[in-house]
Each structure stands twice: as structure tokens, then as C-alpha cells.
Amino acid sequence: MVTHEHYLVLSAILFGIGAIGVLVRRNAIIIFMCIELMLNAVNISLVAFSKQLNSMDGQVFVFFIMTVAAAEAAIGLAIMVSLFRNRETLNVDEINLMKW
């Protein structure tokens, strides 16, 4: 019998892996994909809560998160294209123009 705790623990582990990826990797595109992974982990737990509470609100929230993720991917990748055009790199250690 699969309880919702199974899904929540899986969601926590996936979120942790995504967080490690954001903190460890230096390629901006891979950092971006790890952010998408964290969004997906949150989606799993929202749908699990929606099933636990017999409510549709969690699934509607996931729908909104998907919309925001699509918009974010379009904007973020556009930023990366213009960044690469100007700086010839996507290594986040070298993108330090605004660093004090």
C-alpha cells in the first residue's frame, strides 16, 4: 500500500538533489534544469496533498506552477542566449559583472 508519505519523502529527496545541483554545478543551463527539478519535486508533494485531502486545489496550484515554469524557461533561456552572445561563457563563476 503506497501512502502519501512515500510520495512526500520522494519529493523531499528530489528537492534535495535539485538543491545540491544548484549549489554544486557551475554551468548556468544545468543550474536552470535543477531549478526545474525542484519545481517538479514540489509538484509531486502538492498532488500528494491534494489526494490526501480529497481536494482539487493542489492540482490547480500545480497547473499554475507549470505555467510559471514555462514562462520562466522562455525568459531564462533568452537571458542565457544574450549572455552568451556578450560574454562567451555560461560559467556562473565568470559572470561576476555585478558583483561588488
Binding site: 529527496i13 528537492f15 534535495g16 538543491a19 545540491i20 545541483g21 549549489l23 554544486v24
Partner: peptide, 9 residues
């Protein structure tokens, strides 16, 4: 990075 990620998980 790995340590902080494990803490978050």
C-alpha cells in the same frame, strides 16, 4: 554545496 543540499533534504 553538497552539505547544504543534504541539510535541506
Amino acid at each position: 554545496g553538497v552539505a547544504l543540499g543534504l541539510v535541506i533534504a
